[in-house]
Design a protein around this nucleic acid. Structure first.
Lengths: 178, 178
DNA sequence: AGCAACATGTAACGAGTTACATGATTTA
DNA sequence: TAAATCATGTAACTCGTTACATGTTGCT
């Protein structure tokens, strides 16, 4: 039930509507950690409200409903954060593709690995200055979501970039010993 | 339909039964890339056989059915590998937990980050010698699944380890400027 | 007046999990 | 002969996606 905990975690920052939460999933959250669309988020919020984890604290124009965390909701979030399950959910299409390059012939594999390396290099070039600037502006500040996520994204792309280059290096070297 | 492509990719190594494939998902594949249980794998193989992507090439004791890739299956795999979708599926409970540490009070957050760092350090200590040995034994060899996955795992744990230490460092420094 | 963005929902379908169910073969 | 492992499946339920559906508010 990770969607539920993602929603609880986002609401810990302050009340938000289903619409607001949906936009959060369109950013770094959905990019690196967990995807969800509004068609799943709205019903889940209703169920969470029924169970007392959140409450509608305010209504606005256009039928907007703002949800706030309850004490039960905060307790549930804390329990989940402090007690990770043995087997975490992992589903990453990109990593799957990376592992399956070995099913391609060498020219195709090389192409896929080069595309991965290029993409990582682009993302690193985009993220590095952003994170560096945040660091310069506020070196000892708090750790909001965006900063944790951005720093993770940067390091993750660097890791995958290194992996792709390593793999290309291995692929380049033909098997000499038979 | 990543499960389908995962199965095609595994079958590219050679024929295998649903049981064999299930065990592959219990290893590095399920750990880093994509999880699946036998209750999902068996029906998917039946559907793939109906669509001509795989065939039952051999039957064995205990009703064992070995599946082999067809030309259509191999073509489908190649198409998927060479044409990544704009938005890849990402669902990672651990990364979600990492991002949500900001919803905890500092002592709890510190505990979670320290646990993550410790876990990564353990995994690195386990993987580093294994990968190093493989490298020494066969430095320019081919890139089987296990080697790609192991190298990814090592680099990924190093990245997360670095991230956790960075986050702890930031958390330790209190906000001095008001 | 028209468009973009805000805002919420339902229904049908597909993917994934948990529990249930069964039986054969190998090894100690 | 007992236990572990091999081996395949179904059913009920939950989670997630795609398509459909509707209406409001703010801006130009």
């Amino acid at each position: 039930m990770s969607l539920r905990h993602a929603l609880l975690g986002l609401l810990a920052d302050g009340p938000a509507s289903g619409y607001d939460l949906t936009r959060r999933f369109a950013g770094d959250l959905g990019r690196y950690a967990w995807q969800a669309g509004h068609t799943r988020i709205y019903p889940e919020l209703v169920k969470m409200a029924e169970q007392g984890l959140v409450v509608v604290d305010e209504t606005g124009p256009r039928g907007r409903k703002s949800y706030a965390l309850t004490d039960d909701g905060r307790a549930e979030l804390r329990t989940w954060m402090l007690h990770p399950p043995d087997q975490a959910v992992v589903r990453n299409e990109t990593v799957l593709r990376m592992f399956l390059v070995q099913a391609l012939d060498p020219p195709d594999a090389r192409g896929v690995l080069e595309a991965i390396a290029d993409h990582c290099a682009q993302e690193i070039a985009r993220l590095r200055p952003v994170m560096h600037e945040l660091d310069a502006d506020d070196p000892g500040g708090p750790l909001p979501f965006g900063r944790l996520a951005g720093e993770y994204g940067l390091r993750q792309y660097e890791a995958v970039h290194g992996w792709a280059l390593w793999s290309l290096e291995r692929l380049r070297a033909p098997t000499t010993a038979g």
